[in-house]
Design a protein around this nucleic acid. Sequence first.
DNA 1: AAGCTGATTTCAGCTAAACG
DNA 2: CGTTTAGCTGAAATCAGCTT
Length: 293
Amino acid sequence: MKNRKAKSNRAQADYFELLVCQYICHLYGITFSYSQDLAELSNKVLVLPSGRERLKLQNDNFIKIQPKIKEILNYEIGQKGRVINVIWVGRNLLIETTSDVDAEHITKQKTRFSIKSIASTGTGTLKNLGARQIQKFLGVNFSAQYKKMWEDLRDYLNEHDLSQGKIKKKVQNSSCLLKWATKNGQKYQIMLNDLCVSAFNNLPLKKKVDFLNFITDCNDEDLYVIIVNSCDVIIYKPIEKNLKLIKNIEVKKDKMTDVGYTIFVDNKPTYRVQTNNTNGIGISAFCQRIFWV
DNA sequence: AAGCTGATTTCAGCTAAACG
DNA sequence: CGTTTAGCTGAAATCAGCTT
């Protein structure tokens, strides 16, 4: 467990998004209005451990996707007219869209990009669901259990007044306490996973389809997803993954662990789900992360 | 009722650590 | 090794409690 804090940084993803913005502006002679942000982000990344390598990775990955972006936009320009504006969406419209960068055409139509830059292999997180989305799509309300998890921990510490944040810090700073909290949290983690599996399998087909369409964000016809990692560039349009003629969607028991499961679409393993916590098991909120298989 | 403030949650994202 | 699990970041959204 060395260098934990060095693990990830949002600034890297933001920096990458802005490289793409800048490139599109350059392609179509549009003023790039995020120079200041780009410079600040570059500095933020640079001060991290191996900052220089991190920046280089983003720059290298960016070079790999340039021709693809150009190709897509040239096609879209044929449909929607020339590009007149580039908008860094970033995390501003979290609920509405996963788009990171929007190119606006003269017809007011858009071409949107969700971009993932990954150092090694894999396709990144497809979706990260909090309690609200879990309740909405799976009908699982875990708030009572979540409360109980914290009560267990408070009882164990005999600490009933301290704020949750303070307790969390205290536990994080003691490997012994953290061990206890993790063990306690794991019970609930497994519980939530079980609840979600059966809730999912018991949904009517239509609701399963709704859920899967939501996690792929496939109601947006202007959206492209571009994933770049050490071996290749993956591009798809979520709308093309819209599930219409599907007969069977289910979680199969043989591809399951205590904390994760695989969703099969017409018997083909398609999505992998992780049930865990955002900031450490036993000391933070639960979430589910969904990945392509 | 409406506004403020600080705490907590949500969610996209990256990647180290653990696992087999 | 490749795959799975999970810790961490950051910023917006939401919530709870207090005040006006």
